[in-house]
Structure formats: C-alpha cells, structure tokens
Design a protein around this nucleic acid. Structure first.
Lengths: 177, 177
DNA sequence: GGTAATTCACTAACAGATTAGCAAACCGCT
DNA sequence: AGCGGTTTGCTAATCTGTTAGTGAATTACC
C-alpha cells in the first residue's frame, strides 16, 4: 500500500495562511483596541462605510462572518449604537443594516491610522511583493472552489428530535429590531 | 490634510487571507468532522505525531493557538483520551504532552485522506502555483515582524482590583494532571 | 541565602466560529 | 385559497480566540 502511507508529507497550508493572517492583523489590532471594536465589527463597519445600507446576508458574504455569528455581532453593535436594523417594508424577512452617524464618524477617525499602517507594511515587505501576494491570493480564490458548496442542501423534512424551544415570535408589525 | 483622508483605499488584506484560509480548509473539514476532532485539535495531533512529546508552550508556538485556549483544548483532548499530560520532574511548572496510542492510530488513519486532499488541491491550482504561494507566505512571515512583540512586558506590580477567585491549588506532588 | 523578577500553565469573562436546526415570510403552482 | 418548497434571519450548544490577570516554581541578583 504505497499510496496509503501513514505519514504527512505536505506542509500545513491552512496553518501557514493562519500565521500570515495573524502576522498582518497584529499591526492593526492596536488601532481596533484603541477604538473599542473587534476585528469582525471593523470588517462590518468597513463594508457599511462604503454603502448606505446592506442586508445581513450580504454582510455575511462580504465579511466572511457566518450567519449565526452575524446575529450576535449585529445585536452587540446595535447595543453599542454602531448600527441600526429595520425590516424592509415589502419583505418582512429581510433587514436593512446601516451605520449610525456615530459609527461613520468613528470609521473616519480610524481611516488615517489604517491607511498609514498599510503604507508601513508595504514599505516593509515592498509594494510589488504586496501586489504579487494579493494577486496570488485572488487567483487561489478564483481557482479553488469551496468544498461542499453547490452540494445538496439536504432538505431536512424530518420531525424535530429536540425538546421544543421558546418560539421567540418575531415582532410582527414592529419595524424596529 | 491630504495625507489624512477619511477614505480607505487599500484592500482588506487580513480578510483576503482569511478567505484564502477558509477556502483551503473547507476541503479538509469533512475529514476532521468524520473523525470527530476540531481544527485546533488536529493541528496539535499533527505536531505531536512527529515528536514523542512537547511542552504546552512549544505547541502554542507551533500551532499558533493562544495559551489560554491551549489549556481548554488540552483538557478536552485529555478527556477524549487523545493526549496525556504529566509534570516534568525537575521543573514542576512544566508539562509534557504526548499523544495516546489511540490518537496516534487515529492520525495514521487520517493521514491518507489528508495527503490525498493536498494532492487534489495541487491538481486543481497547479503544483508550481502551490509552491509559489507557500514561498510568498514564508517570505511574508520572514519579512514582516509581529507588531507588539518584544515590547515592554509591563510588569503589573499593582494590587488586584478584582474579587478574589478560588485559588485552584495545584496538585502539589501529583504528576498526573 | 533571601528577595525581586521572570517563566509557566492556568482561570475568568467575553466575543466569535461551527454545526444543527427552526419559524416566519415569500414564491410558484394548482 | 391552498399547498410544497425556498429564503431569510435567528436560536442553541459547544468549542476556540482575546484580553486580563493569577498562583506556583524557577532564576537572577545583591
């Protein structure tokens, strides 16, 4: 069984990517901490900074934050007064998420530091190298598809086998969340 | 104030690296799930698979898992019968962590699938591209230093301002953890 | 040799990721 | 109108990341 060796020859690529990401983000973390927001919150602020408003599923896609996490993150951000959430009139499932003026002002205050940090990183690793790295990562994302995407949605028509929960009835009629 | 623009011109590089990592790891997740272990647990199994034993701080370094997380992860892995932990005789602070035979056998069973997945990924993105990407990431890690490393340890000589906790006295004398 | 500084592993509290699942709202069709 | 199927945002449970800080053991230094 030569093709079934029990040894691991390849490097741990996910770990390598994780290390790279942590190395880069370590330069930004002080800025985020100084403004009291988390990584994920900043990603959301950043995409909403460019658009008047977005829907949760769009933010999920743009920020790579899972839908279950998004619920908690947005709730906390609303609690902090960073975002507003309201139902879309013609479709009561959907929600419009927008930055508050306070969050928009905070993003404006953070932008110079963020940009300066990028320039510092580029000065360190070289602008061409930075561009090259981004190009390779883009190509990786374009070439390698997500495993399990496009697979069967696995419609679960079976009965629930868990103890029932509190229904948490949606505030029918109230636009505010 | 031309250098203090409130706009964000650079791409979100940490997000790009996160996307790349998630894309790659999505191909391995089914294997991990099938064997009932998490990403981090696999990283630990993998490094311990090559060495007879390691100390927690070494695993922290090799697997990029923070020290506080490591405590919980190792405790769960010990509970699952994947690792053993015992104090080092001549230094009661330090701990030796080793894989159990059971974990070693599991790693051996997983190895073929892991390797096959790497080969599949390389077939998709191209072996040269894969090598090139790894080279760039290595160079990034070699060039860009961690921000905040080597800074002042900030000796905290002040009084504790929190309510006292249960001391959780270390089992003085007992090697078993 | 005794005290201060450091190292090491750990706990606590909170935010977020992952997996599983679920109800309400919408849509297409009859 | 009514029904099956889909979309959307959400909850629950468990695990991990981050920050702050602690006790015990060891080391450095006078």
């Amino acid at each position: 069984m030569s093709p079934k060796s029990t040894k691991l020859h390849h490097r741990n690529l996910p770990l390598l990517l994780l290390q790279a990401r942590e190395r880069v983000i370590s330069h930004f973390r002080p800025i985020l901490n100084a403004h009291g927001i988390t990584e994920q919150q900043w990603r959301i602020v950043r995409v909403l900074y460019e658009e008047p408003w977005l829907e949760p599923r769009e933010i999920v896609e743009l920020c790579r934050i899972s839908s279950p996490s998004m619920a908690g993150v947005l709730a906390r951000m609303q609690e902090l007064g960073l975002v507003t959430r309201r139902r879309i009139d013609h479709d009561q499932r959907r929600v419009r998420v927008a930055l508050t003026p306070r969050a928009r002002a905070m993003a404006a205050r953070m932008a110079p530091g963020i940009e300066a940090t990028y320039r510092r990183i580029e000065r360190r690793i070289g602008r061409p190298f930075s561009a090259h790295l981004q190009q390779l990562l883009d190509r990786l994302l374009a070439t390698l598809e997500t495993h399990g995407a496009g697979a069967a949605p696995e419609h679960h028509g079976g009965r629930a086998r868990r103890e029932p929960r509190r229904p948490a009835t949606r505030t029918t009629g109230g636009q505010e969340l």
